[in-house]
Design a protein around this nucleic acid. Structure first.
Lengths: 190, 190
DNA sequence: TATTTAATTGAACATCGGTTAATAAAAAGG
DNA sequence: CCTTTTTATTAACCGATGTTCAATTAAATA
């Protein structure tokens, strides 16, 4: 009644997540079905349930992986080897570049909202913000109010989320990014 | 085979839109069914189809109404009766207050994204931005780069969209709003 | 090679979706 | 009071959905 696939690449959580990513971001959580994901992968939908308990768990595992990736990126931007101003600006620019280079990741992490998924919402975003804040503090010689760092975060988020929504790539807005980053830096350094 | 409701208040496009609003924002476009909306209203789902061609048209009519409301609000913030600084700050504050007072409207207008709905995406957001930009220019004595106004818009959007997403009301963030508005003003006036 | 284990399939289940159309009640007009 | 028009109900159509599970086979193990 059934047949197993001649396996050139075995299905795994990672393979499923990668295949599902684009779909989830293009169509939204509700609009993507397990059958669609399976079709995308060239497997039957039943196979996914061998690797994930259900759709929500798959989605959440994907989000978690995105946060790991983003946090790594932030880490790599933390080196303070140059002038204070350039370090901070590099960090701000890096945030924007990441968001627009991986718009689907960013959307899933910071923009998507779905009742069915809310239960899975953890402290992942806050943890990422903490890293961001620490990186700012580490690169800043003079003391800075927490409020300002948080404002910088909100400003970056406004920039990235808007251009993610309308589907612009980083190079489309590179020029504007520069002046935007300058403005945020001025606010921080004021 | 059927029975008609003892009518104390007849169904209308407006009544349907109002009833559907909360649902759409709480659950998202896909997760809300015509049957749910009808149940919410105390009518049968078929009745909605008398007033709207289909689900997408209902949704779009709702969004349109939200933009009209928002634009009116912006208009009312355009009076320049005081000091330049207070006028501008009042405008910025007004944007945030509106967004957080009507988070579901804001979400539908500026945050929601759904493939099935994209076709309906008109120039409504741009029109709203134009009004915002005009209001800034009208209240500013000295000339100002377009880039800066746009940046202010993105900053406001970052603030509002974040707090809309996590469900905070305006009074929850009133204190932070003040310093955020100050920062944006400084950027504009610099 | 024989056997066990891990992975995949596809049917089945129960539910729900948008939309249409036939039907009936209420309201309006005469 | 009768007729017409407007508005609401309900069943029906047809397809899709998440999830479970017995059957099945490829790969790993012994």
């Amino acid at each position: 009644m059934a047949a197993r696939k001649a396996v050139d690449r075995e299905l795994s959580r990672k393979v499923i997540i990668d295949g599902a990513h684009q779909l989830f971001v293009d169509e939204g959580y509700q609009a993507v079905s397990m059958r669609m994901i399976a079709r995308e992968l060239g497997y039957s939908h039943g196979a996914i349930y061998y690797h994930f308990k259900n759709k929500a768990e798959l989605f959440y595992a994907m989000v978690e992986q995105d946060f790991v990736m983003f946090n790594k990126e932030l880490m790599s931007l933390m080196q303070h080897n140059g002038v204070e101003e350039e370090n901070i600006k590099g960090l701000l620019r890096g945030f924007i570049r990441f968001g627009l280079t991986y718009p689907n990741h960013y959307e899933v992490m910071f923009m998507m909202k779905d009742k069915e998924i809310e239960q899975y919402a953890t402290n992942a975003p806050e943890q990422t913000y903490k890293m961001f804040a620490d990186a700012i503090v580490a690169n800043m010689t003079k003391q800075i109010e927490v409020k300002r760092i948080w404002s910088a975060f909100l400003m970056l988020h406004g920039f990235v989320s808007h251009y993610v929504k309308i589907g612009h790539a980083f190079q489309d807005v590179e020029a504007l990014t520069e002046s935007y980053v300058d403005a945020i830096f001025d606010m921080l350094a004021k």
